[in-house]
Structures are given as C-alpha cells and as structure tokens.
Design a protein around this nucleic acid. Structure first.
Lengths: 296, 296
DNA sequence: TCCATTCTCTGACTCTAGTCAGACGACTTG
DNA sequence: CAAGTCGTCTGACTAGAGTCAGAGAATGGA
C-alpha cells in the first residue's frame, strides 16, 4: 500500500474526527446523554426495539433503560407488538418528534455554520469532495459473501432483481418464465450466489451456474438503486469471475436484455465480447462471453 | 445556505463518524483508556505537562492522574524542570516509545485496510477527495481576530513575516529599514493587526494603517507556509478591506516586492490596480490601490 | 403438551472521563 | 522578605456508557 496514501487517510481521519466528530456528538446531545439522542433519532416513525438494538449495536438491558428514560421524559411511548407480544414497539410522542426535529435543525445549523466560514468557490469544492468521500467510504464498507439463496438477505436481492427487470423490460419479467435458476441451482456444487451487503442491508448480488468443465453461466446480476455509481457492479463481476476461475471454469457466459444498457456497457468494458446466442433465453437480446485466465 | 449542500455535509458527517470515528477511537485505544493513549501520543519526544494540558484541553488533576497511571505502567517518566522546578517534564520510556510506535502501526494498518477494499481507480479518487476535505475543513476552522501587536501570537506572525521576506527578497529584509510600522501604528486608533489562527497557532496576519480620511495602508501580509493554498490570503485581504471600509477609508493602498509573485497575483485578482509609487519604500517594486465601495 | 428459544426487563456492577476544591511547594515581584 | 501567582497533586465527587447474569413472559416446534 502506498505510504503517502496511508498518510493522507490518517491526516484526514485526524482532522475530520476533531472537527466533525467532536462537534457532532457533543453538540447534538444537548442536555441529554448521547445514547438517548441516538435512540431518539433511530426510532424515527416507530420501530421495534429488537431492530433498534441491532442498528445501534447495543446491549438489550442498556436499550431498555434508555427507553425507560425517554419514556419518563415523555418523548417516547412503547407498546407490545400485536402479532408477537414479546416484541416492544417504540414510537415517538409529539414531544419526541419535536425534539427530534430540533436535533435535525441543530444538525443543519452546524453544517451551515461550517460552510459559511468558507468563501463560495471553496465551499463548493468542499461539498463536492465530501460527496466523493462519502460515496467511496460507503463503497469501501460493502462486503461480499457467498450466501445461500434461501437466506432472507438473498431472497431480498432476488425479489428486487425480478422487480426491477419487470419494470425495465418491455413486456415485463417473471422469474418463472425464461431459463430458470432456482435456489438449488445457485447453491454449491451446482452454482453459487454472491451477495453484497452494506452494514447488514443487501445492496447487490450475482449468481453463477457451473457446468462441469464448461463455461460458468452468470445470472441474477443486480445492484440496488441506492448503491449505483460506486463501482459495485464491477466488483461483483470481478469477484464472480474469480469464483468461476476457482471452480475451474474456462470462461464466463451470460445473456442480457437490450434494456439493461449500463450492464451491457459494464460487460464490454470488463472484457466481455458479444457471441452468437448460446441458448434460447426468452428475455435475452445479447449474449456475451469472457475467457478467464487459468486459475493457479 | 443551499439546502442540498447542508444535506451533503450531514450525510458526510454521518458516514464519516460511523466509519472513521468509531474505528479510530476505540480501535486505537487498545486495552488502554483513550485518554491515556492520546496523552502518550502527545508527549512525543518529551514535553512539559503544562503544554500537554493546553494541547488536549484537560483538567490539571485529570492529566496528573493519567500520567501517574502511565508511569505505573512503565511507559512514561516524569521529572521536575531544571529552570523552573514547578513544571513537570514528561518523557516516554523505551516501552512508551514502543507503545506509541505500535499505535502508529495500527493507525497505518487501519488506513491501509480501508483503502484495500477499493479497486485502484476509486482508491485514488478517495484519497484525492480526502485531501480536499482535509484542507478545506482546516481552512474552515481558521479564525480571524484583531489582535494587539504585542500579543505573543501577533509577535510570532510579525517575526515569521520578517524572516520570510529576509529569505525571499534579493538582498534580505529588516523590519528596521524601509517604512516602519511599529506596534503603536498597528493598534487602534492608528491602525490594526488582523491575525488568523488555526486552533491556537497563528497561520497568517495582515496589518492596516489608517490615515484619517485617506486610503488605508496595507502592511505585513503573511500566510504561514503550512497554510497556503487554503484561500487564506484572500480571506485576510477581504477582511482587511472590510475593516478599512468600516473605518471610513475610501481605498486600500499597498506596496510590494517583485519577489512576492503570488501576493501580486492575489492583489490583481482581488481588483487592485497598479498605481505610480505613492511612497519611497525601499523594498517595493510595485504599488497597488483598490477603491472600496462605501461602507453603510 | 412441553421444552427450548426469543425478547425484554431488572439489579448489580464496572470503567472512562471528567469536575471541583483545596493543599503545597516553587517562583516572582513590589 | 512577604504576598501573590503558578504548576501540580490529592481527595471526593458525578455522569455517561456499558456489561453481565438472571427472571419471566410469549412463542414455536417436536
């Protein structure tokens, strides 16, 4: 790793934690402990306590106590879930909502204050650079994992994939038509499904079907709308190629629909070349193939 | 303030504090409290406790206790000052130095890890954007204040100003030659000295001499080498013009040396036009003037 | 139906990170 | 040389942020 890059990251961390971190946390907490403020924020329009705990990574006893304190302050009400009466639902009261909005305003004011000290041109540069950092830092925390197709996270991806194609394809799309790729096909040893997650929420996926010593068949490539432009598609593709090579596949093949222009551009720029139709996929207009370097 | 800019800053804060903040602080602290680690870091190659306290903004009792704990762990030794036996000097032991280097390494490793998750192109973009954010955030925390010329901070600026000109001018420079601008001249009502500080360290200055209803005379413009490229010169100049206008000056005048090319470029781009020599300043090659809009 | 699991809550702790007041010796200055 | 100031230390507190070990209800599955 380049030393000057590392040094830059460290300088960045230092400056940013001093400026942003210190202000953000302590300022926003007002007269309330930070934990309570964070909780207030995360509750949003009502949420079950279980997911709050997961989102903030806190001990159940601790959250319970924080909630009680917010309840005592009249900012939050809790009630037991209708379906499952073990779970507690937390909801903001009117006061709670007002308090959250106030935090919001203070947050805005803080950001505005920071910007106001700078002259216009530099203000714009700062905001642009922040946008870059934010997007790339987000991209850097995306994790890839081979996931069972029946896993809820994988299910979410596959549903989102189908939903998107249904919107974009002329005449819609259904997983039941065309060439099938069911759970069993996307599970070793027949194939695999790679899922990209940001924190714990799925933001993309891609599947491979293995055919003995023949080319691997790429399927179900999807990137969530919120995560586009982060180079995720390319990273998914590269990781899938790595997996295919590791399984001894000499090449990767795929078919795609003319409506998916950005995907087609990605395949081309990643070294895929258009080949004659190698199957009779109903939804496909283009067929691509890329020969893989042999795996050692 | 533009709403989308504010929103971007807030998103940035959120993402960055999650990613960087959380890691940085808690990870680096190892098994030692964060306060001790920070202190260990700040001691560096030995430092008096008084300045440590100031640098970290901590209570004297608290620092005392932290030091004692570090001492008990064999990482630090303290001794009384030779000149003034009230002050304590803290110095790292061999173990202390090793520990600090370890923190250093972990810091590097953390930064490298972050970068490694990204493909090359994005890695470079991230580092470039971080550099921008860091510089601009630094610039945003610079504060300007009219300061008495005898204040140590102001003294530092004036000495640094003279030292730099002495290096850059053909034939050197001395405050005693040429047209004088002594402390009394740079103090209301005769004039003023504006000092720019980053946290508490001086990074730039600029002086004004008032001449009744005549043009104000700009003197002693200096920006520390470490703070160049942040648009500080321009902000100093603008603030000085504001001050001059507020004092009823119809214009600002200045003379400058041909060696100060970037300053000359700044004056030109800020609307100053070259005028015939209006004084006999020994060191000057160019004379500039800018008419100010009337102050309401 | 019963047993294991899930979800939440309570009580009893711990550790960090401070704050505040006062004591005390070391300097400084009139 | 006396009085005040400075730098440090100690003791006595406080609040925040969490951890850990159950207890007890609700639910799900065999």
């Amino acid at each position: 790793m380049d030393e000057t890059m590392v040094a830059q990251v460290r300088r960045f961390n230092r400056v940013v934690t001093q400026q942003v971190g210190a202000l953000n946390d302590r300022f926003l907490a007002r007269d309330r402990p930070l934990g309570e403020s964070r909780l207030l924020w995360e509750i949003g329009e009502g949420r079950d306590v279980r997911s709050l705990r997961a989102a903030l990574g806190l001990d159940s006893g601790y959250v319970s106590r924080l909630l009680r304190s917010l309840e005592a302050a009249g900012l939050v009400t809790t009630q037991r879930g209708a379906a499952d009466r073990r779970v507690t639902l937390a909801r903001l009261t009117g006061d709670g909502r007002a308090e959250r909005d106030l935090l919001d305003e203070r947050s805005d004011a803080l950001a505005a204050e920071l910007l106001e000290t700078l002259p216009h041109r530099q203000r714009e540069r700062l905001v642009a650079a922040m946008a870059d950092v934010e997007r790339l830092l987000t991209a850097a925390t995306v994790r890839f994992a081979v996931t069972d197709p029946d896993d809820p996270v994988a299910q979410h991806c596959l549903r989102a994939y189908a939903a998107e194609l249904d919107v974009r394809f002329d005449g819609g799309f259904s997983l039941d038509r065309g060439i099938r790729a069911d759970a069993a096909d996307l599970r070793p040893p027949n194939g695999l499904l790679l899922v990209a997650t940001l924190h714990a929420t799925p933001v993309g996926c891609g599947g491979l079907l293995f055919h003995d010593a023949g080319p691997a068949h790429l399927k179900r490539m999807w990137v969530d709308e919120s995560a586009r432009g982060l180079g995720l598609g390319r990273r998914l593709l590269e990781e899938l190629e790595r997996q295919a090579a590791e399984h001894g596949a000499p090449a990767v093949r795929l078919e795609t629909n003319a409506a998916l222009t950005e995907a087609i551009a990605l395949y081309r720029s990643a070294g895929y070349t258009e080949v004659p139709a190698f199957n009779a996929e109903l939804y496909a207009h283009h067929w691509f193939e890329k020969v893989l370097p042999p795996w050692e």
